[in-house]
Nucleic acid binder design. Structure first.
Length: 923
DNA sequence: TGTCTGGCGTAC
DNA sequence: GACGTACGCCAGACAT
């Protein structure tokens, strides 16, 4: 004998879901109807599927509830309901009633609490209660007689007690505990920081209940444990907030309360529905009604969409009060007036807006200019959409701007002008007169901080401009800049241009005040930016077919290796998952744990697996798979996809203001970590080629950082080794091991080489022992002997640390500053880290300065001599060129000469050059 | 579904 | 805790 069913629909939870799930449908009068359609479909289906006698659709009412009294922050961060949804609430209530459903909306009572109350009443009166909701919170209401269904889930799911346990990992009567630990970001109810569904369920299972977890708080390890202890005072209040109330007073809102008579599911109001469907343009639903439709009424039912979506935001309150005037240029008169202002300005800022982050493909959407802080103009060029104004013709505008943009005497500034240089080059404009760049100014002043315009404006001007995200959104919701409202785009772009000038007024004097910084900025960074743009634009030719062949081969071998690994393990597992590897190796096979990761998990890194491989077969397989799948996924699979179809080349992006030491970095793709160490990996380099009639030439500095160490430390032994052109590792070994130069063994040389590299990085005895696979005591012995023999190096390291602590920064030979905020930290390990940075940064940074100077010198010479040779890559101490065969001799002699000549250090600089059909051969 | 973090590995 | 500077892949967890 089955029980009568009480069906409770959580209308509020379905409002947003229906709104987002449905397309933006519109009624005859343009009013939004998507969510209404969603509701009609859902309520009809529920009615058909469930066969309920009693039912209700429950909505949240406006106004505060008891939870707001307990916790004023409750739901505080909820964004206001979108106007398109707000407009549909009224029609939804109306149509739900027409569909025969009792609708309940009680001021001061949340839908959840009304549902909880009704569910208990239903149970008490012998009903089977079905709650239709998309909200996991209501899982706490599930009992043998109360189930949940979520019709919006795909597939629709039905949760009884077992289902709740299966889905959440805890029984319904522990859902409250589980929710309390997690918190609810949407309702702004805090939980335990960093604890999500997994951890919450795990804890509740382990300790039985929230109270159990609280009691065990001191014993829980890790960051999660710490966060739990921080949250202890809060949790009881959190529990109250997430607990659904079961005894609300609904009298006055339900006839016959506390009985359920008022919730009898009624017949459809056919006449009412026909009228409703007609008015709102629900043609398909209209057909489902058996009677004929009456003539449509034209009355607009839903309130019109309000205009706030398109309203101009309040201008931000700027700490720095400057007068702002922004123009949007839509006529040639305006354009010419602005051009005159730009011509008259001693320094003008500009900023391009585009439709892509990829500089090679970006098409210009608009451009702004500023001739003084606060004063700017935006020229929309490619804005789209019904509301976009008539814009000046792009070609004509750019033709008028071109003479100014290409005028080297017309000085310009921007934020990361390398990007704008590309955008203009895409339009056939060769930017000249790029005198300043705020990103580089900031980088030279404070390399360790962030250099976005937004951050700079905030930090130095106290100004908070519109952000790109404000305009375009982010992630999946992002819209192209071309679709941004022109007025907003204008404000944003003008702001960027004039804030850039404004920033320059603050930053430039700080650079100018220091001769070293001025030199680094003016003589290194600014010229480097232009050269980088040229390298990026040139691109490097890559043989996609060759990489694809390699990918295929790697794939075949990986398949084989995977099977072998599964066979040894006795089961398949994910070889890409360190976690699963750990489970197999250490739990299933019982291999010893060699070391742990930062988070306490058993490490499976190369070092660990190599050690285990001495005794067991599986680790060796895993290592092989790791090596090959790295090559495949990162290089042979990916690089072909990065080839620009228009040029057939790869155009990386060199980041000039990322590495704190002054190095460049390369991304999308990173061409600075192409394998070279192993024969397998080196094959990737064979795919970097030169076109017919050209060769690749690689020129790299020999031992540049050790030479710099010799220069800075003035250690006599090291100086002499380089001055006499000795093999520096051999010379080091000779000193450390007390062996004559020509009797140094290859193993001694290898040790010395490791010591030399270690020194550059500030390595200690522990690290050296690890690297060489020797006892820490022996390693310490070597280091001591090194410092005895090369006392100047020891002195340099000690003095550098002292200087860093006193000044807070260290410097390169050319005066680049590297700030070390943690050099005097009370935190031991952090301070030690900063000390190693202090030792390494002058060497790494000076090397970076030198190669940038080399790039400038070489490019200048190539241009002056009218050569067709192109610089195509920079890899920290190496420059790669694409060279016509006719210029090979010139390049082979001139490039190393120029590289060696950029600075006169106390040791000679040496650059070695190689030539080949591909990058591998060129080494 | 998207975003972030940890683990790992490549380069100099 | 122990070797500096980067970028990027994948898996897994968290957030939406």
């Amino acid at each position: 004998m089955s029980k009568p069913i009480l069906l409770l629909v959580d209308g509020s939870s379905f409002l947003y879901r229906a709104f987002h799930a449905m397309p933006d449908l519109r009624g005859p009068d343009g009013a939004p109807t998507g969510a209404v359609h969603g509701f009609v479909a859902m309520m009809t289906k529920l009615r058909d599927d469930i066969g309920a006698e009693h039912a209700a659709c429950i909505f949240d009412a406006k106004g505060p509830t008891f939870r707001d009294e307990w916790f004023p922050e409750y739901k505080a961060h909820r964004p206001p309901m979108p106007p398109e949804l707000r407009a549909q609430i009224e029609p939804i209530h109306e149509v739900v009633k027409l569909l025969g459903w009792p609708v309940l909306e009680v001021p001061g009572i949340e839908a959840d609490d009304a549902i909880g109350t009704l569910a208990r009443m239903g149970e008490a009166s012998g009903h089977a209660v079905v709650i239709a909701t998309g909200d996991k919170d209501l899982a706490q209401l599930v009992t043998p007689d109360v189930t949940l269904i979520n019709t919006m889930a795909k597939p629709p799911e039905r949760l009884d007690e077992a289902g709740v346990e299966a889905k959440f990992g805890v029984a319904p009567n522990r859902i409250i505990d589980y929710l309390t630990l997690m918190g609810d970001a949407v309702d702004n109810v805090p939980g335990v920081e960093k604890v999500g569904p997994k951890t919450a369920a795990k804890w509740v299972q382990e300790y039985g209940s929230l109270d159990g977890v609280i009691a065990a708080a001191d014993a829980i390890k890790g960051v999660a444990g710490e966060n739990l202890r921080k949250a202890l005072d809060w949790l009881p209040q959190g529990r109250r907030l997430v607990t659904v109330k079961l005894d609300c007073d609904l009298s006055g809102h339900m006839d016959g309360w506390p009985g359920l008579e008022a919730l009898k599911l009624r017949e459809l109001d056919k006449a009412g529905l026909i009228d409703f469907y007609t008015r709102n343009g629900f043609k398909t639903w209209l057909k489902t009604m058996t009677t004929e439709a009456k003539p449509a009424s034209t009355a607009a039912m839903a309130p019109a969409v309000t205009g706030d979506l398109f309203a101009e935001p309040e201008p931000p309150a700027d700490a720095a009060q400057i007068e702002r005037h922004y123009d949007t240029v839509l006529s040639f008169e305006q354009l010419d007036a602005w051009l005159a202002r730009l011509r008259a300005a001693p320094l003008a800022a500009f900023d391009t807006e585009t439709d892509s982050l990829d500089p090679m493909r970006a098409r210009i959407v608009g451009i702004s200019f500023a001739d003084r802080p606060g004063q700017a103009a935006y020229i929309p060029l490619r804005h789209e959409g019904p509301d976009a104004p008539e814009q000046l013709p792009l070609d004509e505008v750019l033709a008028r701007l071109k003479p100014w943009l290409e005028d080297a005497a017309a000085l310009k500034i921007g934020q990361n002008l390398k990007y704008d240089r590309h955008v203009l080059a895409n339009q056939g404009i060769a930017l000249a007169g790029a005198a300043h760049d705020t990103m580089l100014e900031s980088y030279v002043l404070e390399a360790h901080k962030t250099h976005s315009l937004e951050a700079l404006a905030e930090r130095h001007l106290g100004r908070h401009g519109l952000s790109y995200e404000d305009l375009c959104g982010k992630g999946a919701h992002q819209i192209p800049f071309a679709q941004v409202d022109v007025a907003k785009a204008s404000t944003y772009s003008c702001e960027d241009s004039e804030m850039c000038l404004h920033l320059h007024e603050v930053l430039w004097p700080r650079i100018e005040a220091d001769a070293g910084l001025t030199r680094v900025y003016r003589d290194i960074e600014i010229p480097t930016a232009e050269i980088l743009a040229r390298i990026e634009r040139q691109g490097v030719l890559v043989d996609a077919a060759k990489l694809q062949t390699q990918s295929h081969e790697l794939g075949q071998r990986l398949l084989q290796l995977e099977q072998e690994a599964y066979a040894i393990a006795g089961q398949p597992f994910n070889l890409g998952s360190p976690k699963q590897i750990g489970e197999i190796l250490f739990t299933k096979l019982g291999l010893p744990i060699v070391k742990k990761t930062a988070t306490g998990a058993a490490s499976t890194d190369e070092e660990v697996l190599s050690e285990l491989a001495l005794e067991f077969p599986l680790p060796a397989k895993i290592l092989e798979v790791r090596a090959l799948s790295k090559l495949k996924s990162t290089y042979t699979d990916k690089l072909p996809l990065q080839i620009n179809p228009a040029t057939g080349r790869i155009h990386t992006n060199y980041a000039q203001a990322v590495a704190v030491t002054g190095r460049l970095s390369s991304n999308e793709p990173n061409l600075q970590n192409i394998p070279i160490r192993t024969a397998e990996g080196r094959r990737v380099r064979e795919a970097f080629i030169a076109p017919p009639g050209f060769r690749l030439v690689s020129a790299d500095y020999s031992q540049i950082e050790l030479r710099i160490m010799a220069h800075i430390s003035e250690d006599p032994g090291l100086l002499r080794a380089f001055q006499e052109g000795q093999d520096v590792h051999r010379a080091t070994a000779s000193e450390v091991f007390g062996t004559p130069l020509d009797e140094v063994s290859s193993e001694q040389r290898r040790y010395a080489k490791t010591i030399n590299f270690g020194l550059i990085y500030g390595m200690g005895a522990f690290g050296l022992a690890q690297s060489l696979g020797i006892e820490q005591k022996a390693a310490k012995d070597y280091i001591d002997r090194y410092f005895t023999r090369f006392a100047g190096v020891k002195r340099y390291m000690d003095e550098t640390k002292v200087e860093a602590k006193a000044k807070g920064y260290v410097e390169t030979v050319f005066g680049r500053r590297l700030w070390l905020p943690e050099i005097n930290s009370g935190n031991g390990p952090r301070r030690a880290g900063a000390e190693r940075q202090a030792i390494n940064a002058p060497m790494q940074g000076t090397a970076a300065d030198l190669i940038k100077l080399a790039m400038i010198a070489v490019q200048r010479e190539l241009d002056a001599a009218g050569k067709a040779t192109k610089m195509v890559m920079q890899v920290h101490d190496e420059l790669v060129f694409e060279v016509p065969e006719a210029e090979l001799d010139w390049v082979k002699t001139e490039v190393p000469r120029l590289m060696a000549g950029v600075a006169a250090l106390k040791v000679p600089l040496l650059a070695e050059v190689g030539v080949g059909a591909n990058w591998d051969e060129a080494h």
